[in-house]
Simulated scan of single mutants.
Amino acid sequence: MTAITSNISSARDEFLAALKDTQVSSGQLLDMVLELARISDVLEPFLPNEHYAINGRQPYWSSDYFNKQKVFARQNFSKERLEHLIEVREFLRQRGDKGFAPIMRSHQSVAPQNPQSQSDYQPTNNLKKFVAQGDLLTIRTALRIEFNDNRLDDHQLYAAVKWMKEQVTDIFESYSEKAFARGIESDSSQWTSEYFGNQVVYLKTNFSEERFLHLIEVRQLLRERGEENFAPADSTEPKATSRARSASQSPQRPRSGSQQSTASAHSELNPAFKAALLIGGAIAAVVVFLIALVR
Rank of each mutant, 00 (worst) to 15 (best):
I139H: 02
E173W: 06
K162E: 15
R89N: 05
R12Q: 15
F77C: 05
V161D: 01
G226K: 09
Q156F: 04
L127P: 00
A285I: 04
F46Y: 15
R105T: 12
T241R: 14
H266M: 12
R12S: 02
V201W: 08
R57V: 13
N55W: 10
E90D: 13
A17Y: 08
Y65K: 03
I139L: 05
F66G: 00
Y202K: 07
V42M: 03
R182K: 15
S26C: 06
Q75E: 11
A179C: 07
V201L: 14
A159S: 01
K274R: 14
S246V: 12
S264L: 08
A244Q: 14
V287I: 13
A3T: 15
H51P: 02
N7H: 12
V33R: 00
V33P: 01
D170I: 04
L36C: 02
F72G: 02
S246E: 08
R12H: 12
E209M: 06
T262G: 04
V287L: 11
D31A: 15
D135E: 15
M32S: 03
E83N: 08
V24N: 04
G96R: 11
S242G: 10
I171W: 09
V131T: 00
V88R: 01
K165H: 06
W61M: 02
E146D: 13
L157V: 08
R140Q: 11
L293W: 06
N126K: 06
L157Q: 03
I283T: 08
Y175W: 13
S188C: 09
D154M: 05
S106E: 11
E177Y: 15
K204Y: 05
K274V: 01
